[in-house]
Structure formats: C-alpha cells, structure tokens
Design a protein around this nucleic acid. Structure first.
Lengths: 101, 101
DNA sequence: GCAACAAATAGATATTTGTCAATGTGTTTT
DNA sequence: AAAACACATTGACAAATATCTATTTGTTGC
C-alpha cells in the first residue's frame, strides 16, 4: 500500500483533540445520538457538530440520520483503515543509516 | 486500560500533519539522521526540528544524539502504545442507543 | 400552516500550529 | 582558539482550529 499523506493527516486529526477522544470513548459503548453525546461534554451544540464532522470525515465514525436525530457510531471499516495505516507507518523495513558516520 | 485524553491527543498529533507522515515514511526504511530527512522535505532546518520534537513527544519516534548529529528512528514501543490506544478507542462494547426512540 | 425541537451553518474571535529568518549551543576539525 | 558544522531555540507572522452566539434548515406533532 502507498500511503497518502493528506488523507492520513485527515484520518488522525480525529484523534488529536481531547474532546474527540472523549466522544470516541462514549461511542465505545455503542451507537449514540448527538443529543446524548452533548450531555456528556462541556461544549455547545455547534461545537459538537463541528467535532462530529471531523470524526465523520476521518471515517472512523459513521453518522446516520433518523428523523430529526443524528446517530453516531464507530465504523469498523474506518477504524480498520486507520489501524492499517498506523501499522504501515510504523513498520521498520530497512537498515540503519550510516550517511553521517 | 483507561485512556488519558490529553496524552492520546499528543500521541496522534504526530500523525495529523502531512510533513510528519512523510517523515515517518522515511523512517520506515530505518534510522536516519536529521540532515538526511531535511534533504527529503521542502522545509527549513528549524521547521524540521519542530516536527521532530512533536514526533518525539508522541514517543512514536526516538532520537539519539551522536556527536553533532541526531539520529531518529521509529520506536517500536511507542508505536505499539499508539496501536493499543487506537484499538481501545475503536472497540465496540455496548448496545445500540435507544435514548431518542 | 405553525410551534417545537434537533442539528447544521454562518460569522466572530481567541488560541494553536506551521513556517521562516535570526540567533544560540554544543561538537568537531584545523 | 578559531572556524565550521549540526541542531535547537527564539521571535514573528500567517493559516488553521476550537469555541461561542445567532441564525437557518429540516423534521415532528398539533
């Protein structure tokens, strides 16, 4: 696989904000509606909406609309992709560098 | 494991910038000195230094000094920790939310 | 259609981040 | 010791980000 840097940055942006990590932890107990997530965080509704967008852009979180509610859950597919990229980026293939010795 | 949100954000900050992803890809072929990495990126030396600090703060990258050179490599330990956190954050344990139904 | 509700969008603002030029620090070489 | 080199730190600045208030959009129930 050849990793796209821009896409990788978008994916892991999901995980580099405290509130978004909290949201993922909440989603770990299963699908949640936005209103429920909002209760658990100390942010306004628009701020939550902003974070949910970033999480969905990463594809680690999946959102579905049902009537006037939005339900969010962790996407196994998206999570697996993030894991695969993390694996690829941290595998060590080569030799030590002697360029400066 | 109970995941610390602040620490998690610091760890994954390593992966949410294009240049840092490029650096990780370079380190995938083994330990490299800063000067070699600098050749491959379109940034100045202080900018590289800044990125290397963020990568080392995440502990995904390890730096060692040898004389006037800095050698960087991927830390298996740090990478494993990032993988473990990503796993924990994307495992689904619970039931679907019925709170709004 | 209208009121009530849930979520998204727009606009404003403070903070954080990525970047560079200039300078400082520590090491090697002459 | 002085010069050269590799890297870190500082300070400045523009761009991106997180947050809020106000408003808009879309859905439900009267």
């Amino acid at each position: 696989m050849n990793i796209d840097e821009k896409r990788t940055a978008i994916i892991f942006k999901a995980l580099c904000d405290e509130n978004r990590v909290k949201i993922l932890k909440l989603l770990g107990t299963g699908e949640k509606c936005a209103c429920k997530i909002l209760e658990e965080l100390n942010v306004t509704q628009p701020t939550l909406s902003h974070h949910m967008k970033i999480l969905c852009d990463s594809e680690i979180v999946f959102g579905r609309k049902e009537g006037k509610w939005m339900y969010y859950s962790i996407s196994e597919r998206g999570a697996d992709q993030a894991k695969e990229i993390l694996n690829e980026l941290t595998v060590i293939n080569g030799e030590d560098c002697n360029c400066c010795k």
